[in-house]
Simulated scan of single mutants.
Amino acid sequence: MIEKFLHDEQDQKAVEKVYTRLIDLLTTGEEIIYIAVQKKPLVNILPDCIAITNKRVLFFTPANLGLSIKFIDYVWKDVVDVYTKEEIIGAIFSVKTTSGAEMGVDYLPKVQARKLYQYAQERKEAEREARRLRDLEQKRAESGSVQFETPSQHVAAHQIATPPVPEPTPEPKLEPVIVHHEEAKPDILTEKLKKLRTLFDNGLISQEEYNHKKLELLNDL
């Protein structure tokens, strides 16, 4: 099974150790794409390794004199960018994450570093496209929700904000006021006539003054 990861001068023993560890780490639907092995100019008994899957990138470092392997992994959605730098001896491959963390391995065979960079870029592009589609679906869902709710809300708002215009008050309703005013006049006139009569009966005014004043009051009707 590991033969497909030995085409670019990878150290077979290192790949075997990493592959055995990787099998236990794979999640449902996760597949190994490439494994790169560090190759220092001097004897490197315990090289670092990098593995790329369709879901993440993993950095492996031997520990306890090669009896165990430590690893750090980053899912592709958290990888901001990947870098490769070719030097006189080998190349460096590193990644930068959304949290600002950086991880890399040096002294990689240049062909392996190039393959890592190529596959990493492909996975990042696939992740960007998947994110774009998710955002598009979310916007469509939100847009559909607004379009579904807006008509009813608009009608309700229109009904509340636009009450029916009241009909003009019929003219007959003003008649009681006019009648009341006219009915009040005889009451005032009667009082004045009574006072005028009292003045006359008490001899305070003459018959002529009484008749004259009475005529004036009656003319006001």
Rank of each mutant, 00 (worst) to 15 (best):
A184S: 03
Y210I: 06
I50F: 04
L199G: 04
R140M: 11
F200I: 04
A63C: 04
N64D: 14
E208T: 07
T162V: 02
I23T: 08
I88H: 08
Y119P: 00
A36L: 04
P176N: 06
I52E: 00
A156L: 12
T53H: 03
T190H: 15
D11I: 10
D106A: 02
S152H: 06
E216A: 13
L189G: 09
L215Q: 14
V82Y: 01
E191R: 14
K139E: 05
E167L: 03
N44K: 05
A130T: 10
E167A: 12
L116Y: 07
L199T: 11
K70R: 11
P164C: 01
L204M: 04
K173C: 06
F59H: 06
T150H: 10
V146G: 06
M103Q: 13
F71T: 06
T169C: 02
D48S: 11
Y210H: 14
L26N: 12
D48E: 15
V82I: 14
H154I: 09
P164D: 01
E208I: 04
L217A: 07
E129M: 14
N202W: 00
V179C: 02
D187A: 12
S68F: 09
I205W: 09
L174I: 02
V111E: 11
E209M: 11
E31C: 02
Q12L: 03
A51Y: 01
E182C: 03
R21M: 08
P186E: 12
Q10W: 05
S143W: 10
V165W: 01
A63W: 08
V75A: 09
K77A: 07
M103E: 11
V179A: 00
V155W: 10
V75C: 09
Y107G: 02
I23L: 05
L22G: 05
Y117I: 04
Y117V: 03
E216H: 05
E102V: 12
R134Q: 15
F93H: 14
P109T: 09
I188T: 05
P41D: 05
I205K: 05
E175M: 01
K70I: 03
V43D: 08
E86Y: 03
K70Q: 06
A91N: 11
D187W: 04
E182P: 02
K194D: 14
E209Q: 15
N202T: 14
K213I: 09
K139L: 13
R114L: 07
D201C: 08
F59W: 03
K4G: 04
T28I: 10
Q112T: 10
R114V: 05
S94F: 13
E149Y: 09
K115W: 13
L199Q: 13
S68T: 15
G144R: 15
F148T: 06
R131S: 00
A126D: 04
T162G: 00
A130E: 07
H212P: 00
E86Q: 13
R21E: 15
V15L: 08
A161E: 06
I33F: 08
D24N: 05
F5W: 05
T98A: 12
W76F: 09
N44R: 01
S143P: 02
K13D: 12
L108D: 00
E208F: 01
L116S: 13
V80K: 15
V57S: 01
N54K: 01
H158Y: 11
I72G: 00
E129W: 07
V43N: 07
K139F: 02
E9V: 13
E9N: 13
Y34T: 15
E127R: 11
F200A: 10
T190K: 15
T20Y: 05
A14E: 09
